[in-house]
Design a protein around this nucleic acid. Structure first.
Lengths: 131, 131
DNA sequence: GCGCGTGACTTGACAATTCAAGTGAGACTC
DNA sequence: GAGTCTCACTTGAATTGTCAAGTCACGCGC
């Protein structure tokens, strides 16, 4: 409960972004076209479609993202990272990464990190299987 | 991110309580007098005082908790678990415990659980130290 | 015993989230 | 080709959380 909160604080203070906003931008930036379907982005950020819709609307009003109906199939909506959104992400990523390092990576050895990851993966698998 | 959410769902569905509401009731029930200061309860539930104040007001309006000014010192407010609150907690605890077991405890061996705990403690210590 | 500061809440306005309906595009059926 | 289904969102209202003031009780110095 405390780790996400600690990261929230850092991001809010230094970049004016919430954790989920940051990750939405980050996920978009990882796509070659800086573009993802709303539903896919919702999956990737663990958000409901409704939550993402509101969130993207806010990001859009701040000029960080824009939306376009998929020209191939009018049922889909694409969220697209704008230049400004990309710039903000690039500007705020180092601070965020530093914070993650200092809170998590630096505490554990490489072997311990592998352990953490393995344990967490098992937990995640179990949770996902339990719906 | 997913574990708290999975627990939320179970509690909301089976007991009509959010995770934090459940834990507030649980913490109160652990005290011999079923009573805690607002500030102490806020600490124990990792909530801000403001959040707890709103939350307890809602619980109070549902008759699960009541508030009394500390007779010893008028600056403190005590939150007190009511009979109804205790009954609800007792009724919903087994389902919650079962869920926690099936998602977490059952996945890991005793030795692994000790490891998880040790790793998590180190993480928590580091986070708490970083304010 | 009168101000003054501090600490423990409480409150109200605002922002974010959820929930339940609504919309609208394509697929499928006949 | 008209009707129906499903899926991918979108929207609006109600709930919940946060932030910035406010309130109110006690302790302390003078």
């Amino acid at each position: 409960m405390k780790l996400p909160w600690a990261l929230e604080c850092q991001l809010q203070r230094d970049a004016g972004l919430s954790f989920i906003e940051y990750h939405a931008l980050a996920r978009l930036s990882e796509d070659p076209a800086h573009t993802l379907r709303m539903s896919e982005l919702a999956m990737l950020t663990n958000a409901s479609l409704s939550r993402l819709s509101h969130l993207v609307k806010r990001l859009e009003s701040r000029g960080l993202v824009r939306r376009e109906v998929d020209p191939e199939d009018g049922r889909f909506t694409n969220a697209i990272l704008t230049k400004a959104g990309y710039k903000l992400l690039v500007a705020s990523a180092p601070g965020h990464v530093t914070r993650v390092r200092s809170l998590v990576m630096d505490e554990f050895s490489a072997a311990e990190l592998r352990q953490v990851r393995q344990l967490a993966d098992r937990l995640l698998t179990r949770i996902d299987a339990s719906d």
